[in-house]
């Protein structure tokens, strides 16, 4: 299957659409249907990009959470365990769509593409650059963190002697150290590539809205419109 490559602007629109729909609570089955349908879009896009494992994992998690929520639990269930379970399922059902979309966008957008899209939308340089760094940094943060955990486990100090303050300190300080040095490298690399030069930057990525972009835009406009109509214009 040929991967469907989308314009970064379309992806941003997707994020906003999904987080809007997820934020408003869904009550009726139709609203739930819209929510689930809109979650399916990034999953399908992931499959088209060949990320089968992630797509499978996300849909499995989301499916289980929804199933548990609908079939076994209600607002009357009390007790610690069911409250915890309910909390997890609620969180997953609530935030998973936004997380899936964000994951898809972060994984499939090149930073160059993102910057060029931001420039086309006339977003101020400061916000564009910092957002790009945030986007790029989450995976790095996770990698560094797992490396630190590994090192600590090897030395047998994973729980910091059972003290909460030590646990935080042992993890946070090395993380900050590596983040600071990564930041320095990053800005050196960025300056070499002409970031912060007074000229207008050019980009090797030529962004054009293609048929696929318009289709996605259309689907999302339809869903959001439908959702608002069902929700507020009854």
């Amino acid at each position: 299957m040929r991967p469907i490559t989308l314009d970064p602007r379309t992806k941003l629109a997707m994020i906003f659409g999904v987080s809007f729909i997820v934020m408003v609570n869904a009550v009726t089955p139709l609203e739930w249907a819209i929510r689930i349908a809109i979650t399916m879009i990034p999953i399908l896009l992931m499959i088209s990009e060949g990320k089968y494992a992630a797509a499978f994992r996300f849909s499995l998690l989301y499916g289980i959470a929804l199933l548990l929520l609908k079939c076994f639990l209600s607002s009357e269930s009390t007790g610690f365990l069911s409250a915890m379970l309910l909390g997890y399922c609620g969180i997953i059902a609530q935030f998973m769509p936004a997380m899936i979309t964000a994951w898809y966008v972060i994984r499939t957008t090149k930073i160059g593409e993102f910057m060029s899209a931001m420039q086309k939308m006339h977003v101020p340089d400061g916000i564009a650059v910092s957002l790009a760094v945030v986007m790029r940094f989450f995976p790095t943060l996770k990698e560094e963190y797992s490396a630190i955990s590994d090192a600590m486990r090897m030395r047998g100090i994973a729980f910091g002697g059972g003290k909460v303050s030590k646990m935080i300190e042992y993890r946070m300080i090395p993380l900050l150290f590596s983040c600071v040095s990564i930041g320095e490298e990053l800005s050196a690399a960025a300056v070499t590539r002409g970031l912060g030069a007074p000229m207008k930057r050019t980009s090797p990525y030529e962004l054009r809205l293609k048929a696929a972009d318009w289709i996605i835009f259309g689907i999302f406009a339809l869903f959001v419109g439908l959702f608002v109509a069902v929700k507020y214009l009854r």
Binding site: V129, S130, A132, V133, G196
Partner: peptide, 20 residues
């Protein structure tokens, strides 16, 4: 005026704060 380096610093620390 803020330079590219400052933007990158802001981005990194925002990511850390958000992780916390």
């Amino acid at each position: 005026k803020l330079k590219a380096k400052d933007f990158i610093t802001v981005g990194i620390f925002t990511a850390i704060i958000f992780a916390v």
